[in-house]
Design a binder for these strands. Structure first.
Lengths: 343, 343
DNA sequence: AAATGATGTGGCAACGATGCCACATTGCTG
DNA sequence: CAGCAATGTGGCATCGTTGCCACATCATTT
């Protein structure tokens, strides 16, 4: 009854194509995949029929049968932060070129969401995972599941997994040196965390710079803040309203820099006359404001594509030596830094 | 030989769990899913064993068997543009809450990549798709494949698919009215396209405002530009360097506004004294520069979550009436607009 | 003429999870 | 005590695709 010629409401399967082309499933599969022997005429006919029926192979079934998948998981901390958005865009571009589909998850910096996402990745049997990790557990977990993983931006696994990072310590030291060489002696550091390698290295670079310059670090100038603009802004207002205001402020990332910038505006301070400001991590607005913000430019897109390259390498050679790729970062001097006013 | 107790290198399957727990696959499945009868003691034992083996159900196999999937496809034009990043973040949040995995693809505004991505979505048998469409084909294609789709930000399908958009025409008219009411008569419009509903409606709103104010539109003030900052910047430099410079510039989106802003800087023009600038679409930098940029604030996060809500509704009731959700947009007056100088 | 290789085709058993069905074993009720 | 519902359990086919294998049919070689 409804067996023959029923205009199919279900999506077409390879069986439908086979029936319509009058050949077996096996032949159809060979015709469509291009593997194995098929007569040229048959191949063309099958392909035409497939096209006609709007046949799209069931990726799940295929990946189940082939025991491998063409998707990779990407886990970032905050898509709305241009750093992560650029990073994801860098991965996306390359992934597509290599025929991979990207599953992007934003864990909002939450360790629990991060682990949940990792479980989902395992469930989908992704070919590999790129993560800007929030906790050490995720790498442990994924490695135990034998899923290739690349830690990006920061690393927790301490050599157990591949990693792609920026040379935070060096860039941070140079940025700090820049301020010191302008004559600054009271340089505050706004930083949101020092437990990840990013924060720890940026902190270390800053300290190293002070030490090498013979400056005693002032603990009251070390300002720990939360990871959002509002918190940084409030902390920066407090800092800049002090009687013994620092002559320069080093912000450990673009979000904190935004807070500092807004705080300077709130207090009516002139940059760089009243205070110099620098940022670790460039952002579009930093070259649009007046004066421009002196910053360390991390190429997040390049970071993403380097992470993808490493992941594809790892997928290719699962047992190869673990690698940590370190990228350089440039300092972009702009107008927000100048010699401090004489007291 | 290697049949028994081999420490499995492969990932554990339900079969492994069943064997280890000493029950059948069926019972194991029931124990893990919670559907159907299982003795409480058995359930606990099976769950413990599963945990122990690090068992994670094969999502592909499950979705193949159940003939339904828990992932949705999201297709945006440019992840690096904060508008799309916010939009995606808005979707991501809700998707997770509803147990869906988001497959995010950046088609870079390219129609061919868009169609490719759509095919990949069909291949993965996603439950639905949210797209900021680049061409009309994608909706046609997905609808023919019986995949629920929501067009966001702009719509091509003309009522054939659900849509979630901002009231571009009204917001654009108001923004233009704002300039007119300040006394501007020569208002240039920088716009990158007028074929999508976004561009067409913003253009229409601008024209409508001029008409209603009895101003004759000047074709030389209608500047078509490309969709990137560099192009907009060059075009804006040309525009603002004219002898008969417009007294105000209306940028049709945040990217063009960035170009105009930089162009004003290039020419050493003071905003708003020499020229007023407004932007359709707010961005973080617009409240950080001096003066702030008067802009229409589209809530991209809300747009994303509205699109998700509509999609889930459609998945729930596939045959329900097609809906177009229209969101309002606010004008944020800042310092970049003022009355024109007397000539 | 028989043997060999190249070219083509179809049957069928997986991949892992699920849910229907048949079959036990209880504890009740009439 | 037959009859029956409630509670448990296992067997097995199925989802769509793939690739191995067996089996044709031909042309070419010994």
């Amino acid at each position: 009854m409804d067996e023959v010629d029923a205009p199919l409401l279900r999506r077409a399967t390879i069986k439908d194509v086979a029936k319509a082309a009058g050949v077996s499933q096996s032949t159809t599969a060979r015709a469509l995949s291009g593997e194995g022997y098929v007569a040229a005429t048959v191949r063309e006919r099958v392909r035409a029929v497939a096209e006609d029926l709007g046949y799209v192979p069931h990726a799940m079934a295929s990946s189940l049968r082939k025991q491998q998948s063409r998707s990779i998981g990407v886990l970032v901390s905050d898509l709305r932060n241009p750093f992560y958005a650029d990073f994801a865009a860098g991965i996306a571009r390359g992934a597509r070129q290599h025929g991979y589909t990207m599953i992007l998850v934003d864990d909002r910096g939450d360790a629990a969401e991060e682990i949940d996402a990792a479980k989902a990745f395992v469930g989908m049997r992704v070919a590999g995972v790129i993560v800007t990790p929030v906790s050490a557990e995720i790498s442990t977990y994924l490695l135990r599941q034998h899923i290739p993983i690349v830690e990006a931006d920061r690393t927790f696994s301490n050599g157990a997994a591949d990693a792609v990072v920026v040379d935070n310590a060096t860039a941070s030291r140079r940025l700090s040196d820049h301020l010191v060489s302008l004559g600054h002696r009271r340089i505050a550091l706004l930083i949101d965390e020092t437990e990840w390698t990013t924060g720890a290295d940026r902190f270390a670079g800053y300290m190293r710079s002070l030490e090498d310059s013979g400056l005693a670090p002032d603990p009251t100038l070390l300002v720990p803040v939360g990871s959002d603009v509002g918190d940084a802004r409030r902390a920066a207002v407090d800092l800049l309203a002090r009687r013994d205001r620092p002559t320069a402020v080093f912000s450990a990332n673009n979000i904190l820099a935004e807070g500092v910038w807004r705080a300077a505006g709130d207090l009516g301070l002139r940059v760089p006359d009243d205070v110099s400001i620098v940022s670790f991590d460039d952002a579009a607005w930093m070259s649009m404001v007046t004066p421009g913000m002196t910053a360390v430019a991390q190429d997040a897109v390049a970071l993403g594509s380097a992470a993808l390259t490493r992941l594809l390498g790892r997928i290719d050679v699962p047992a190869g030596p673990i690698e940590t790729v370190v990228l350089d970062a440039q300092i972009l001097p702009r107008g927000s830094t100048a010699a401090p006013r004489k007291p």
